[in-house]
Design a protein around this nucleic acid. Structure first.
Length: 582
RNA sequence: GCGCCAGUAGCUCAGCUGGAUAGAGCACCCGACUUCUAAUCGGGCGGUCGCAGGUUCGAAUCCUGCCUGGCGCGCCA
């Protein structure tokens, strides 16, 4: 209805131009916004204020003129002029009520699919397979996943790409260690159970033993030249490492499966083609033995253009080459209309550079959107990147364990009589919800402080609060023993809080499209929190099952039902599961 | 040195394309459970929006300068 109001105003602007009230060539930059203060109605526009200068008139008078030109309609019940010349719109209550009914009748909750679906490639998670997943992968994984789910829900064709680090020099020492251990008669899969430890061992040997280091380098060369034994060993390593990742994804409820895996090694054969294509465009320049691309827009020290090194002086390729190959593949093979990278914000320079080179080289169509959805660092209490108590990088598996344990203990405290199995299940869901909600609720691009105490607290704006709000609705329906599909009848918005709740419910669609556009799930979190807390007030003030009339009871049950559905759907888009009781 | 990002209540964070009296949560203080789960709700306390200029009818938001912190800057990813 925001669009509806904007539409009406645009027509009025045209009328004002015809009347020569304002000059023909003026394009007013006005906004229609939801108001913060209910006394200002549901929407407000600053149109009259922006027209004051071109019309050479008092904004309040202009506002009156605009209001007089507004057509009668069933959407807006009342219009007021306020302050310096704002126009406030009050939504018609019965219209609002009908919107609620319509959303309830729609399995898609009143959210329409986009008219022009895009093929959106989403690059997220992308862990380095040489090591275990750690806290640094958390944000990419869950924010990327939430955006992927949202785009999918809106009707886009989403292609998830897990650009795992499965290639490079570090694999030499890992393979060398595998080889050695096998030679000594160890069971490799056992040794790889703790990947982190395995990596440490390999690194240690690499640093300590010249012989081992030589063998490692040799294995890298063999691997890259396609030696079969070497590839088999490498494949074995990947299989185990990928299963570690999949375990984490499954625990976190992240929608990444082996199908999404398309790692660095997948582009090996494309790398020479990237060089070939770049040579054709004349962009490739040899500098100090390395093949580079220089763009004037990217300058380093001394105002000299910064190179993007495509091929090293020893013939080896770098991440820029792989990233270019990936862009090329996503454009040509996957037919992407839009490509999103959920990668640490510290790489923003690299991505800007990359995108510019790719455009210049013709790897990207002019219409293809490509965006680096950078995210900030997860910090510890000390304001430094989050570490464990022992000072090492926190493994995701350990983080999840701790969240689940803490959640289970708190749930047990609240429900001393709950049986172990249910406790386990609830602890699991609450623990994961806590981690994910705390992260997703923060603005993507800035750093944030990781705190178990804050996120698993059962008070305030937390994952557990959201889950709790949902269980309260669920319990009404359990108690009422009614089939939710049998509900019908008119929605009555008698109480202020009911009106507020309905008003929020019909905003779901516009929130989702903003999340999809900007890649910012925190907007959805804020919205759902708003919905949940408004529901809590409603729940307190408006008896549902014991409402004063059957009509009111029916109406309130429907408000409850829509709240529950939006909460469940919204949390699902965030990748957070719900519980029927807790 | 150059570039990017950040600085908002005691703490953690929102604040949309410049809009009305800068908002939440936590903490603290008061009040509310014979009634659908009090993991809740209502109220209070708390802010020179880093500083100084500028643009504007209007600036936390845009521009300039400065201060503080973080990050990045040729063959790692």
């Amino acid at each position: 209805m925001k669009e509806y109001v904007s539409e009406q105003l645009l027509q009025i602007i045209n009328k004002l131009k015809k009347q020569q009230f304002i000059p023909e060539d003026i394009i007013p930059r006005f906004t229609v916004e939801r108001t913060k203060d209910k006394s200002h109605g549901d929407f407000a526009t600053n149109l009259a204020l922006t027209l004051a200068k071109p019309a050479k008139a008092n904004p309040r008078q202009i506002a009156e003129k605009i209001v007089s030109l507004l057509p009668q309609n069933g959407v807006i019940e009342k219009v007021e002029i306020a302050g310096p010349g704002f126009i406030n719109f009050f939504l018609d209550e019965s219209w609002l009520a009908r919107q609620v009914s319509a959303a309830l009748a729609d399995p898609h909750l009143g959210v329409s699919r986009v008219k022009n679906p895009q093929t959106v490639v989403i690059d997220y998670s992308s862990p380095n397979l040489a090591k275990e997943m750690h806290v640094g992968h958390l944000r990419s994984t869950i924010i990327g996943d939430a955006v992927a789910r949202t785009l999918d829900f809106l009707g886009h064709q989403v292609i998830r790409q897990n650009h795992v680090g499965d290639w490079g020099t570090q694999f030499g020492m890992l393979l060398a260690l595998m080889e050695q251990l096998r030679h000594e008669g160890h069971e490799i899969s056992m040794e790889l159970a703790d990947l982190e430890n395995f990596y440490r061992q390999a690194k240690q040997k690499f640093d300590d033993s010249a012989e081992f280091a030589t063998r490692s380098r040799q294995l890298v060369v063999e691997l890259q030249s396609g030696n079969e034994n070497c590839l088999a060993l490498w494949q074995e390593f990947l299989t185990i490492s990928l299963s570690h990742c999949q375990k984490i994804y499954d625990r976190l409820g992240v929608g990444l499966s082996p199908e999404a895996i398309y790692g660095e090694s997948a582009y090996n054969n494309d790398l020479p083609l990237v060089v070939r294509d770049l040579e054709k465009t004349g962009l490739l320049i040899e500098d100090q033995g390395a093949k580079c691309v220089f763009l004037d827009e990217f300058k380093g020290q001394d105002d000299k253009p910064l190179p993007m090194i495509i091929q090293k002086n020893d013939g080896g390729y770098l991440y820029a080459t792989t990233d270019l190959a990936a862009l090329r593949y996503r454009q040509n093979q996957l037919k992407a209309d839009r490509i999103l990278y959920f990668v640490d914000v510290r790489q923003s320079h690299h991505f800007n550079h990359l995108f510019a080179v790719a455009r210049k080289a013709g790897f990207l169509a002019a219409t293809t959107e490509v965006q680096h959805m950078g995210f900030g660092t997860v910090m510890g209490d000390d304001g430094k990147p989050f570490k464990t108590r022992s000072g090492s990088v926190a493994k995701l598996a350990d983080l999840i364990d701790e969240a689940e344990n803490r959640a289970r203990m708190l749930v047990a405290e609240k429900n001393p009589e709950m049986d172990a199995a249910e406790l386990e299940e609830i602890g699991r869901v609450v623990g994961i919800a806590s981690i994910k909600y705390a992260d997703l609720a923060k603005n993507r691009s800035s750093d944030y402080l990781f705190s178990f105490d804050n996120m698993i607290s059962f008070e305030g704006d937390t994952g557990p609060y959201m889950l709790y709000a949902y269980t309260r609705v669920a319990s009404i329906f359990r108690k009422a023993e009614i089939d939710e599909n049998s509900l019908s009848g008119e929605i009555i918005l008698g109480e202020e809080i009911e009106r507020e709740l309905a008003n929020l419910q019909i905003q779901f669609a516009e929130i989702l499209s903003r999340v999809a556009e900007r890649g910012t799930p925190h907007l959805l979190c804020a919205y759902l929190y708003d919905l949940a807390s408004t529901f809590s007030s409603f729940y307190k003030n408006c008896p549902v099952l014991s409402a004063e009339s059957e009509k009111s009871r029916n109406s309130r049950l429907q408000l409850c039902l829509l709240t529950a559905r939006i909460l469940k759907q919204g949390l699902e888009l965030l990748g957070i599961g719900t519980l029927e009781r807790m």
